[in-house]
Design a protein around this nucleic acid. Sequence first.
DNA 1: GCGAAAATGAAGCCTAGGCTACACTTTTGT
DNA 2: ACAAAAGTGTAGCCTAGGCTTCATTTTCGC
Lengths: 145, 145
Amino acid sequence: MTSAESPECEGHGAAERFTQARAAQSMALLEDYAEMIDDLIVEHGEARVTEIAQRMGVAHPTATKAVARLKREGLAISRPYRGVFLTEAGVALAARVRARHRTVVDLLVAVGVPVETAELDAEGLEHYVSETTLRAFEAWLRANP
Amino acid sequence: MTSAESPECEGHGAAERFTQARAAQSMALLEDYAEMIDDLIVEHGEARVTEIAQRMGVAHPTATKAVARLKREGLAISRPYRGVFLTEAGVALAARVRARHRTVVDLLVAVGVPVETAELDAEGLEHYVSETTLRAFEAWLRANP
DNA sequence: GCGAAAATGAAGCCTAGGCTACACTTTTGT
DNA sequence: ACAAAAGTGTAGCCTAGGCTTCATTTTCGC
């Protein structure tokens, strides 16, 4: 542990970091589903629960629950036995997520990570990259072409 | 996985990526607790549940539950009303996690992320960095001092 | 040495995110 | 047109990981 820790007493501020990481985690699944739904709409004009479930590697009721949460958060809309669609906010989220994913993969590849590994790791990593770090990645990629 | 994957259509195997990311997530908390306990043992000779809880930013019963899980996984041992200690496997895990954390922070800083942000983001990121990526980071850091 | 404070454990509740089983629509094929 | 197949929804169960409340044990101060 380096950086800004009080050497005496207990080093804290640690709790904050974990709390923040936990918050990021709760957003991660929502982001994945939003991006997935956006993909499906682009490909097929709509996203069906069954296909969302297949691609996410979960059973269909799990996908249904996730969609319900997306709707609660104002990111998606759907009617019974019909496809799922993203709201404006949902589309914006999906776009942000996709761009961030690209940047993360690009940076990993740029520092020597094999492309397939970069794609694999990015799936987990992307949700924990802050805006500040993302911009640093972009700046570095621009400066190191 | 009941239903098989259609090898046709476009880019899948996506399900696998998500499944893997989910598995990594289930390991993340265990890793954080193991590292934290190791820190406390180094500092105080033992790790008390209350202090683990404080530093993780959770209530003490939450820490107790996490310790129970660590014990189930063979990573820690403890007796009622006594401190928590790591098994050999737990110590090894903590060491690996700490080394990985440092490498991730170093790489982030090296590409221009502010130190405080790097520490913050690394807390979430580190759990999703594969061995391959970690080694790529180390190689890159050696080549770009 | 004893009573109070601090630490720990145990019970019970909540949400998220998995699952299976089953019921009900919609789509589809003859 | 209608029955079978496919898709979707609902209910109910599980685990993980949060929480509060309360009981118990240890530790500490006097």
